[in-house]
Simulated scan of single mutants.
Amino acid sequence: MIQKHRRKQAAIVAGVGLGVAATLWGMKRWQALKQTPPVSPRSHHAGLAGYFQQVGDWRMFTRVTPNDDQGLPVVLIHGLVMSGRAMEPLALALARDYHVLVPDLPGFGASALPASAPIMSVDQQADVLWLWLQHNGFQRAIWIGNSSGCQILAALAVKHPQAVAGLVLQGPTVDRHARSLPRQLWRSWRNS
């Protein structure tokens, strides 16, 4: 009985220790990420530039390729818990043939949310993209979205169809009829 109690205490102490270590590691990584420039050094060296701009209430960061082709721009929209930095390799791959813009959505990456709107709906984010597009001097674009960025672009296409010359949805979010973890695991296993 005493041995069992000691093992239980040791397991609790080990669990708490791992939790504290993981928290400290996460805080250190978060601080390092906050110090990282919005455009990766490798992408910057390859010609990707970035700039901040005030779009209505939102201070947004945008990456842009050096191709100033006068055709329709291609705009890449990242998914949830990401930033446009995740789209840099695709932007560089498309840069030879297209003028590519990669904004950080409000509240992600280097873009900020105003204190008056700490949470934004999908429709609100679509409206911000519409304002952002006009602010950058374009009326239409070819849009490529990843993950939850697909939802935002679908809302943009419904609310502002004049802004959408083309739409590519890469890895749209979860089927609304299969949002539970067991169903997603089953589908993932079945697809694999």
Rank of each mutant, 00 (worst) to 15 (best):
V64D: 10
M120T: 14
R42K: 15
S121F: 00
Q53V: 07
R85S: 05
L156F: 06
V39M: 01
D127A: 10
A49Q: 14
T62M: 13
G71F: 09
R183N: 11
G15D: 00
A93H: 15
L72H: 10
G107I: 02
A14E: 02
R140A: 08
V158T: 08
T65I: 04
Q125H: 12
V16G: 02
L94Y: 07
V20P: 09
M120H: 04
K28M: 08
S116H: 12
A117T: 10
F138V: 05
A154T: 07
N146V: 01
P161H: 01
M1Q: 03
L33Y: 11
V74I: 12
S121I: 01
L94M: 06
P37G: 09
G47M: 00
S180I: 00
G171Q: 14
A86V: 14
R42H: 14
P103Q: 09
S180T: 13
W186E: 00
S43F: 05
T62D: 10
E88R: 06
P118T: 04
R63V: 01
A14S: 12
Q139V: 13
G84W: 12
V55W: 09
G145C: 08
V164S: 03
T23K: 08
A141K: 14
S188I: 02
T23E: 07
A157S: 14
C150Y: 01
V74H: 12
R42D: 04
D104M: 01
P172T: 00
T23G: 11
F61L: 04
A14C: 09
A163D: 09
A95T: 07
R140F: 09
A110K: 13
R190L: 08
